[in-house]
Nucleic acid binder design. Structure first.
Length: 190
DNA sequence: TGCCCCGATTCAG
DNA sequence: CTGAATCGGGGCA
């Protein structure tokens, strides 16, 4: 059925009626030290990057329109940048892959703010809430974090609780832990 | 549309 | 440690 081998690119046939603008979609599985990730590109932009569940169902990669995934520059770019990011302790890697953020105005505001957090640094949910002008929306920020479609690149893992505790993570707290330590040059903290 | 419920939180008791 | 505050998002009538 679907080849889940890391690095494998799958091309999906165009679905009539979808992507009227001719914007193709392609996905690729990328292997990382903390599990496989699936990257999805549409219109030349990365629109999704998430950790694949242990037993990734074939349906996880459904509905991707046809595009020439094997020669997708954006997939090549994100794959390359992820490789650099994961292989370099301290991870000062700056991602340049064009992103396609899709969500409510509030979510977009949160995610955009997350992109401003430098690698190796953290912010609390409250700080993010204040930064975007809605000091009381602390929990809502948490929800928006959970709705992040582009893991690692949109660094929702850099948001922790005000008391320093790590807080939750859609990909699993162990991954959040790993990422924070990795960016902290492998130093243990807290 | 309105109502209700739920959170990757926070802070006061 | 417990409880209430606060607000965006989603489900449902």
């Amino acid at each position: 059925m679907i080849d889940m081998t890391a690095g494998t690119t799958r091309v999906y046939p165009s679905a009539a009626g979808e992507d009227a603008a001719g914007v193709g979609r392609a996905s690729r599985l990328i292997d990382t030290p903390i599990g496989g990730m699936i990257a999805v590109v549409a219109g030349g932009r990365l629109i999704r990057l998430g950790f694949t569940p242990d037993d990734t169902p074939s349906g996880a990669i459904e509905a991707h329109n046809g595009a020439d995934a094997d020669s997708c520059p954006t997939l090549d770019l994100i794959e390359s940048e992820l490789d650099t990011y994961f292989s370099a302790p301290g991870a000062a890697t700056v991602f340049t892959t064009p992103l396609g953020l899709s969500g409510t105005p509030f979510q977009i505001a949160v995610w955009t703010e997350l992109l401003r957090i430098p690698p190796g640094e953290t912010r609390s949910y409250g700080e993010i809430a204040r930064a975007i002008g809605t000091p009381g929306a602390v929990r809502a920020v948490g929800s928006a974090n959970g709705a992040n479609q582009i893991a690692v690149v949109v660094p929702c893992h850099r948001v922790v609780r005000s008391d320093g505790a790590r807080g939750g993570y859609a990909g699993g707290t162990s991954r959040k832990d790993w990422l924070l330590k990795h960016e902290h040059n492998n130093e243990l903290f807290i």
